[in-house]
Simulated assay, not measured.
Amino acid sequence: MTALGFLYPGHFAEDDYPRIEQLLAGGIRVDTVHTDAGEGVYGVEALRRSGAPERLAAGVEELRLAGAETVVWASTGGSFVYGWEGARDQVRALARQAGMPASSTSFAFVHAAREIGAGRVAVGATYPADVASLFTDFLRAGGVEVTGVRAAGTVSAAEVGTWGEEDVLTLARAADGPDAEAVLLPDTALHTAAYVPLLEKALSKPVLTANQVTVWEALRLTDRRVNAPELGSLFTREPIIQV
Rank of each mutant, 00 (worst) to 15 (best):
A125I: 11
S106H: 00
F12T: 15
A202P: 14
E21C: 04
D176S: 03
N211V: 06
L169N: 10
W73M: 01
A93Q: 06
Q90K: 00
A118S: 12
V183D: 13
R224I: 04
R96D: 08
E230R: 09
V149S: 08
S156A: 15
A210V: 01
A175P: 12
L134P: 04
G5R: 07
L190W: 14
V131M: 09
T222G: 01
G78P: 01
M100G: 14
R88A: 01
P53T: 01
A13D: 06
T188W: 01
D36V: 12
L4G: 01
G40A: 01
M1G: 09
G119T: 15
R19S: 14
G117T: 12
V60A: 00
D15C: 13
V215G: 14
S106C: 00
E54L: 05
G40H: 03
D15S: 03
V110W: 06
E145V: 03
D15L: 03
A98C: 09
K205F: 02
A132R: 07
V215K: 14
I20R: 15
A112H: 03
W163K: 13
R173V: 10
V33H: 15
G232P: 15
G119W: 12
R224L: 05
R173D: 09
A151L: 11
L63C: 11
H111P: 06
E165F: 10
A157L: 06
L203Q: 06
A98E: 11
R140L: 06
E166K: 14
P197T: 13
E115A: 06
A58L: 12
I116F: 10
L94E: 01
H11K: 09
P239M: 10
G177I: 06
T154N: 05
A210K: 00
L65E: 05
D130V: 02
R224T: 00
D223E: 09
A210C: 00
D16I: 03
V121G: 07
T236A: 04
R120L: 15
R96K: 11
A102M: 02
R29I: 15
A95D: 05
V149G: 12
A58V: 15
E21F: 06
G78H: 02
V149R: 14
T192H: 13
R64Y: 02
L199N: 06
M1D: 06
R19A: 11
A46Y: 04
A93P: 09
G77Q: 13
E54V: 07
A189Y: 11
V110Y: 01
L199P: 07
G67W: 10
P128K: 02
L139E: 10
V30L: 13
L203N: 02
R220V: 03
F109E: 08
T147A: 03
L185N: 05
R150K: 15
A87S: 11
G59E: 02
D130F: 00
V207N: 07
V72Q: 08
R237E: 14
K201D: 15
A189S: 13
E238V: 15
A151R: 09
L139I: 15
V91K: 03
R88L: 04
N211A: 07
T147Q: 05
N211K: 09
P239T: 12
S156V: 14
R48P: 08
R29Q: 15
A202D: 11
P101L: 00
T236S: 07
R92F: 05
D15I: 11
G117W: 04
G148C: 04
P9M: 06
Y127V: 08
L56I: 14
V123Q: 07
R48Q: 10
L7A: 10
P239V: 15
F6Q: 01
D176L: 02
